[in-house]
Deep mutational scan, measured.
Amino acid sequence: RIRTTFTSAQLKELERVFAETHYPDIYTREELALKIDLTEARVQVWFQNRRAKFRK
């Protein structure tokens, strides 16, 4: 699998949801994935990585 490059619009939306909750449920992730045209798996991994970055 190649590395996913996020558009600024996708990042803006991901960060907006992250500001609300660091642990979005499956429904939130799936809805977000559809909205920004990514797979739910990519959204899930983005949140994992974002939480790791947040803890640092």
Rank of each mutant, 00 (worst) to 15 (best):
residue 1 R to N: 11
residue 1 R to L: 14
residue 1 R to E: 14
residue 1 R to I: 10
residue 1 R to M: 07
residue 2 I to C: 08
residue 2 I to E: 15
residue 2 I to L: 09
residue 2 I to P: 10
residue 2 I to F: 15
residue 2 I to T: 14
residue 2 I to G: 13
residue 3 R to P: 15
residue 3 R to W: 12
residue 3 R to A: 14
residue 3 R to Q: 10
residue 3 R to L: 12
residue 3 R to I: 13
residue 3 R to C: 12
residue 3 R to G: 15
residue 3 R to T: 14
residue 3 R to E: 15
residue 3 R to Y: 10
residue 5 T to D: 14
residue 5 T to M: 13
residue 5 T to C: 11
residue 5 T to R: 10
residue 5 T to Y: 14
residue 6 F to P: 07
residue 6 F to V: 12
residue 6 F to I: 12
residue 6 F to R: 02
residue 6 F to K: 03
residue 7 T to L: 03
residue 7 T to G: 03
residue 7 T to P: 04
residue 7 T to D: 05
residue 7 T to M: 02
residue 8 S to Q: 08
residue 8 S to H: 09
residue 8 S to K: 08
residue 8 S to W: 07
residue 8 S to C: 09
residue 8 S to I: 08
residue 8 S to M: 06
residue 8 S to A: 13
residue 8 S to G: 10
residue 9 A to Q: 12
residue 9 A to H: 07
residue 9 A to C: 06
residue 9 A to D: 09
residue 9 A to P: 07
residue 9 A to R: 10
residue 9 A to E: 14
residue 9 A to T: 09
residue 9 A to M: 09
residue 10 Q to K: 05
residue 10 Q to P: 02
residue 10 Q to W: 03
residue 10 Q to S: 03
residue 10 Q to A: 05
residue 10 Q to H: 01
residue 10 Q to F: 02
residue 11 L to R: 07
residue 11 L to S: 07
residue 12 K to P: 05
residue 12 K to C: 07
residue 12 K to V: 11
residue 12 K to T: 13
residue 12 K to F: 07
residue 13 E to T: 04
residue 13 E to I: 04
residue 13 E to H: 06
residue 13 E to G: 05
residue 13 E to M: 04
residue 13 E to W: 06
residue 13 E to C: 05
residue 13 E to N: 03
residue 14 L to V: 05
residue 14 L to M: 08
residue 14 L to D: 01
residue 14 L to T: 00
residue 14 L to C: 03
residue 14 L to H: 02
residue 15 E to D: 05
residue 15 E to K: 04
residue 15 E to H: 02
residue 15 E to W: 03
residue 15 E to V: 03
residue 15 E to F: 01
residue 15 E to Y: 03
residue 17 V to M: 07
residue 17 V to H: 02
residue 17 V to A: 09
residue 17 V to T: 05
residue 17 V to R: 00
residue 17 V to S: 05
residue 18 F to G: 03
residue 18 F to K: 02
residue 18 F to C: 04
residue 18 F to Q: 01
residue 18 F to Y: 10
residue 18 F to L: 02
residue 19 A to S: 10
residue 19 A to F: 06
residue 19 A to T: 12
residue 19 A to I: 06
residue 19 A to W: 07
residue 19 A to C: 10
residue 20 E to R: 10
residue 20 E to W: 09
residue 20 E to V: 11
residue 20 E to P: 00
residue 21 T to A: 06
residue 21 T to F: 05
residue 21 T to N: 10
residue 21 T to L: 05
residue 21 T to Y: 05
residue 22 H to T: 04
residue 22 H to K: 08
residue 22 H to L: 03
residue 22 H to V: 05
residue 22 H to E: 09
residue 22 H to S: 04
residue 23 Y to N: 07
residue 23 Y to P: 00
residue 23 Y to H: 08
residue 23 Y to G: 03
residue 23 Y to R: 05
residue 23 Y to M: 00
residue 23 Y to E: 06
residue 23 Y to C: 07
residue 23 Y to A: 04
residue 23 Y to L: 01
residue 23 Y to V: 03
residue 23 Y to K: 04
residue 24 P to V: 03
residue 24 P to F: 02
residue 24 P to R: 03
residue 24 P to K: 00
residue 25 D to G: 04
residue 25 D to Q: 02
residue 25 D to Y: 03
residue 25 D to W: 00
residue 25 D to N: 08
residue 25 D to P: 04
residue 25 D to T: 08
residue 25 D to C: 04
residue 26 I to N: 06
residue 26 I to H: 12
residue 26 I to G: 10
residue 26 I to M: 08
residue 26 I to R: 14
residue 26 I to P: 14
residue 26 I to W: 10
residue 26 I to F: 13
residue 26 I to C: 07
residue 26 I to L: 14
residue 27 Y to D: 14
residue 27 Y to T: 15
residue 27 Y to M: 14
residue 27 Y to S: 15
residue 27 Y to G: 15
residue 27 Y to I: 14
residue 27 Y to N: 15
residue 27 Y to P: 11
residue 27 Y to H: 15
residue 28 T to G: 04
residue 28 T to P: 04
residue 28 T to H: 07
residue 28 T to M: 07
residue 28 T to A: 13
residue 29 R to N: 04
residue 29 R to V: 12
residue 29 R to E: 00
residue 29 R to T: 08
residue 29 R to S: 04
residue 29 R to F: 01
residue 30 E to G: 08
residue 30 E to Y: 07
residue 30 E to V: 10
residue 30 E to S: 14
residue 30 E to T: 11
residue 30 E to A: 14
residue 30 E to I: 07
residue 31 E to K: 10
residue 31 E to Q: 14
residue 31 E to M: 07
residue 32 L to F: 01
residue 32 L to K: 02
residue 32 L to G: 01
residue 32 L to Y: 04
residue 32 L to P: 02
residue 32 L to I: 07
residue 32 L to V: 09
residue 32 L to W: 02
residue 33 A to Y: 01
residue 33 A to C: 07
residue 33 A to D: 05
residue 33 A to S: 06
residue 33 A to K: 01
residue 33 A to I: 07
residue 33 A to V: 03
residue 34 L to M: 12
residue 34 L to Y: 10
residue 34 L to A: 14
residue 34 L to E: 14
residue 34 L to S: 13
residue 35 K to V: 05
residue 35 K to T: 07
residue 35 K to E: 04
residue 35 K to C: 07
residue 35 K to N: 06
residue 35 K to I: 02
residue 36 I to E: 01
residue 36 I to R: 03
residue 36 I to F: 13
residue 36 I to H: 08
residue 37 D to T: 03
residue 37 D to L: 05
residue 37 D to R: 08
residue 37 D to S: 11
residue 37 D to G: 14
residue 37 D to M: 05
residue 38 L to I: 13
residue 38 L to A: 15
residue 38 L to T: 14
residue 38 L to F: 00
residue 38 L to K: 05
residue 38 L to V: 14
residue 38 L to M: 11
residue 38 L to H: 04
residue 38 L to Q: 08
residue 38 L to W: 09
residue 38 L to P: 04
residue 39 T to K: 07
residue 39 T to D: 13
residue 39 T to I: 03
residue 39 T to R: 03
residue 39 T to M: 04
residue 39 T to L: 04
residue 40 E to H: 04
residue 40 E to R: 03
residue 40 E to N: 06
residue 40 E to D: 06
residue 40 E to C: 03
residue 41 A to D: 12
residue 41 A to N: 09
residue 41 A to I: 07
residue 41 A to W: 08
residue 41 A to V: 08
residue 41 A to F: 06
residue 41 A to P: 11
residue 41 A to L: 08
residue 41 A to S: 09
residue 41 A to E: 12
residue 42 R to G: 12
residue 42 R to C: 15
residue 42 R to D: 15
residue 42 R to I: 15
residue 42 R to F: 13
residue 42 R to H: 15
residue 42 R to L: 14
residue 42 R to K: 15
residue 43 V to H: 03
residue 43 V to D: 00
residue 43 V to I: 12
residue 43 V to A: 04
residue 43 V to G: 02
residue 44 Q to I: 06
residue 44 Q to Y: 09
residue 44 Q to W: 04
residue 44 Q to G: 11
residue 44 Q to A: 12
residue 44 Q to S: 13
residue 44 Q to P: 03
residue 44 Q to R: 13
residue 45 V to G: 11
residue 45 V to S: 12
residue 45 V to A: 13
residue 45 V to T: 13
residue 45 V to F: 11
residue 46 W to Q: 02
residue 46 W to H: 00
residue 47 F to P: 00
residue 47 F to W: 02
residue 47 F to N: 00
residue 47 F to Q: 05
residue 47 F to R: 01
residue 47 F to V: 01
residue 47 F to E: 00
residue 47 F to S: 04
residue 47 F to L: 06
residue 47 F to D: 04
residue 48 Q to M: 12
residue 48 Q to R: 12
residue 48 Q to C: 10
residue 48 Q to G: 06
residue 48 Q to A: 14
residue 48 Q to V: 10
residue 49 N to R: 09
residue 49 N to S: 12
residue 49 N to W: 08
residue 49 N to D: 15
residue 49 N to I: 07
residue 49 N to P: 05
residue 49 N to V: 07
residue 49 N to K: 13
residue 49 N to G: 08
residue 50 R to C: 06
residue 50 R to H: 00
residue 50 R to V: 00
residue 51 R to T: 06
residue 51 R to N: 03
residue 51 R to Q: 04
residue 51 R to D: 07
residue 52 A to N: 15
residue 52 A to V: 10
residue 52 A to D: 12
residue 52 A to F: 09
residue 52 A to H: 14
residue 52 A to P: 00
residue 53 K to P: 08
residue 53 K to M: 15
residue 53 K to L: 12
residue 53 K to Q: 13
residue 53 K to C: 07
residue 54 F to K: 07
residue 54 F to E: 15
residue 54 F to T: 12
residue 54 F to Y: 12
residue 55 R to D: 08
residue 55 R to H: 07
residue 55 R to P: 11
residue 55 R to G: 13
residue 56 K to P: 04
residue 56 K to T: 09
residue 56 K to D: 11
residue 56 K to N: 12
residue 56 K to Y: 07
residue 56 K to Q: 04
